[in-house]
């Protein structure tokens, strides 16, 4: 994981930057400023360079900077829009808006799709689903037989892969999530409002 040794020190966002973010996201100017305080707290927790590194993200989420978690990794990777190994303030704001209660469901659905499309192929493959199932079972300390895992993956995959081509494409994902709204509960954070 690249700890981009970015020398750029980010101070409080200039008024213009904050206003632009407020204009282009669901957040108001005041909310953007509040988010900056949060961002500052996280981004100065370990490396003190005004950028959120993976370890800092893990520390903020789990109170533990070494805790590896596939799903937290996915969130981090999606937040890191420029893919330079760190989350910058504008990436932080633009990504968090997907979790805003007022953000349209369609946007949340699309964001979750990208989370699950582990290899970025534009569709969710069966192996990806299985990898994620194994990760959550491991995270929950649940030991399921291989058969039980296969069956669970098969069943869900069959339900979601409507045309049966072995891939869940964005349309199928949309259909699947709209039938299972509970699936996206984590995509809405009441604290953002």
């Amino acid at each position: 994981m690249g700890c981009a040794s970015s020398k750029q020190f980010k101070r409080a966002p200039r008024h213009g930057d904050a206003a632009l973010l407020a204009k282009e996201t669901t957040f108001s100017l005041d909310e953007v400023k509040a988010l900056y305080e949060l961002f500052e707290k996280i981004s100065y927790s370990i490396f003190k360079d005004g950028l959120i590194h993976k370890e800092e993200f893990q520390l903020a989420l789990f109170r533990n900077s070494n805790r590896k978690n596939l799903f937290a990794d996915r969130i981090f990777d999606l937040f890191d829009m420029k893919r330079n190994g760190v989350i910058e303030f504008d990436e932080f704001v633009r990504s968090l808006q997907f979790f805003h209660p007022d953000t349209p469901m369609a946007d949340k659905i699309a964001f979750a799709f990208r989370l699950y499309d582990l290899r970025g192929t534009g569709s969710i493959e069966r192996e990806e689903l299985k990898e994620m199932v194994l990760a959550i079972l491991n995270e929950s300390d649940l030991l399921l037989s291989d058969d039980a895992v296969e069956q669970m993956v098969d069943q869900t995959f069959k339900e979601a892969d409507l045309n049966g081509d072995g891939r869940i494409d964005p349309d199928e994902w949309k259909a699947f999530t709209s039938m299972n709204p509970a699936l996206l509960k984590y995509m809405t954070l009441p604290y953002l409002k």
């Binding site: 978690n69 339900e159 699936l183």
Partner: peptide
């Protein structure tokens, strides 16, 4: 279903 189980991951819980 499998996706619902996944959605319970602490890694997705940004409330922290």
């Amino acid at each position: 279903n499998a996706f619902e189980i996944i959605s319970f991951s602490t890694g997705f819980d940004l409330s922290g």
